[in-house]
Write a protein that binds this DNA or RNA. Sequence first.
DNA 1: TCTCCCGTCGCCCTCTGCTGGACGATC
DNA 2: AGATCGTCCAGCAGAGGGCGACGGGAGA
Length: 640
Amino acid sequence: MAAAEVPVPSEHFTQIKEQNLKPGDLDEEKEEGGVQRMEAQEGAVEAEAAPCQLLDAAGLQNDQPELSLWVPAESDRRVLTLQTVHLTPQDVHLQGLGWLSVPRSGEFPVMIPQEECFLPLPSVLWLQPEPQPDSQHCVTISIPEELYQPEPLELMHFHLLQQSVPAAEQDQELTPSLGENAALTKFEDDEKDRLLPEAEPDAKGGERLLFVEVTRNDEGKDEAVLTISHLSLQDQQGQAASEQTSAPGAETTKPPRGVRGKTRTFQCDACPFTSSKFSTFTRHVKIHNDERPHLCHLCLKAFRTVTLLRNHVNTHTGTRPYKCGDCDMAFVTSGELVRHRRYKHTHEKPFKCSICKYASVEASKLKRHIRSHTGERPFQCCQCTYASKDTYKLKRHMRTHSGEKPYECPTCHARFTQSGTMKIHVAQKHGENVPRHECPHCATIIARKSDLRVHLRNLHSPSPEEIKCRYCPAGFHERYALLQHQRTHKDEKKFKCKQCDYACKQERCLKAHMRIHTGEKPFSCLACDKHFRQKQLLTVHLRKFHDPSFVPDEHLCLKCGKGFSRWSNLQRHRKKCDPEQLAAARKGSSTEQAMEEGPGWDNGIATQASDTGKCPGKPASSENLDDGLTCEMIFNMMDK
DNA sequence: TCTCCCGTCGCCCTCTGCTGGACGATC
DNA sequence: AGATCGTCCAGCAGAGGGCGACGGGAGA
């Protein structure tokens, strides 16, 4: 950073002072200079921990707030420690204690314009680092209010990590560090508590950090913008450390609190991540910004790390260095190969459920499985009450709201919400080997296994109570057995005429038959005054003789092309003209077979059905009525 | 700082099973 | 003609397998 003129304010509410100074020692320590003091402390600063350690104000024997700048002179690292003081107008009396005074040369002053002194944090810090008094620097601090708005008199500490910046290169103090723009700011609640006894302690009982990212300010050559976000610093030693740091008088000889003999955990404020290793922590923090400096030269896709880029490039080149020895699969990483082998070859399942026998290759699968025991459903649908155990089921469920049907049958283009549904459709509608499921109890063939289960439940599950036959006193505990039994009553002609030997299976047939004895013909043709015993016969008459649009069906012989108005006549003809075709037709059609086998077929329903345009689908019975029709033929014909 | 290894997340898939409407057969 | 029942069928959800990708721990 180039030198800049520092507009030193005429009046200050803050001052620079070195860490661990007692207010009473103020003048003496100012004379010592910050650099010397920090060099004396360097040995206590551990390599990993140093950047994040707080040089706190615990050593202050009074509770006076302070603002200090600490510049340790490491060979390859510069740590700036800022403490800010937020004062209210009522604190003006502190000026009389020497706390609020214009910083003197050589004290690493941080100068805050007076008009900004009441802000929670100064928006601009003017730095005057040693050893060149003329080389003055300005740091602009951009602090979103939603991130931080401390109370007045709140004590804060800044640690700005400027790595790989030789101390001599003061002119470039911030500039070269912009690429390594990780910095850390820490706020200690115990300090806050001490200064503000009425303040509520942090809920986590730990320390809070502000993570500071330093970026170049385009408008100011010598300015850097510090973007600050919250972090938490958990003190793993808790109370003991707190007690230690609270002991007055030891601060000047001890390293800064948290530097020695303590294990720190860095917690990211943007996510729950914690790490005890600062380098891991800083690497993690980068995932929260969009910086992806590593570009794929083939597709220009950007990646955060070289490793990610390399793996990506491998997908372009097809490079999969880890090949499975048992199959043709190959993978980009060794871990993928190990997992693949567990799934496909070794079947090693290290993650076992403690409730059932389930075991899985991956822990995440066990975690998902456990939800089937606990009933946990973390993924809630935003449009209904449904909640899912995993994200995919929720996504699949959402199709029920959107109406999306992403799966299309390649043959008939019917669309389906799930691939499995389409697969079954294709297999059963368009497949050659249609799956069939045979009932083990009654040899019923059912297309779907789930329907076979319904069949078994409805027909073959034993009933605790005996089910009575509707025709006789017999009783059964299985519905299928009952139905089989009742079919034995099917051919019984239970309805018998009292005046003749006529008997039939249906009561309505008997009613129609009785009109033979009564002579009743209640159905009259309004056009020609003919009367019929059955409504169906009147209908046939009306169509045949009084409907101008009526066209009688013509049944053609495929052998000679001769036409017949009646189906039965065609059948009789085919016996003579084309017996082979007739035999083939019999084999392929149970209907035709029934036509041939049914008693009275030639004279019965086939004749009438062909005349009326109805297809005779059922065999005729021997219940002959007038006009050559049987009662059941008529009813069956009308049902059709 | 880089790299390897490993754990985890997320996505997609299949298999499975239940449900209810449609439709035909039967009563 | 209407009711009932069985089968077909699509819709939908539960459970689990498999793998790509990402991120962290640990060590070089």
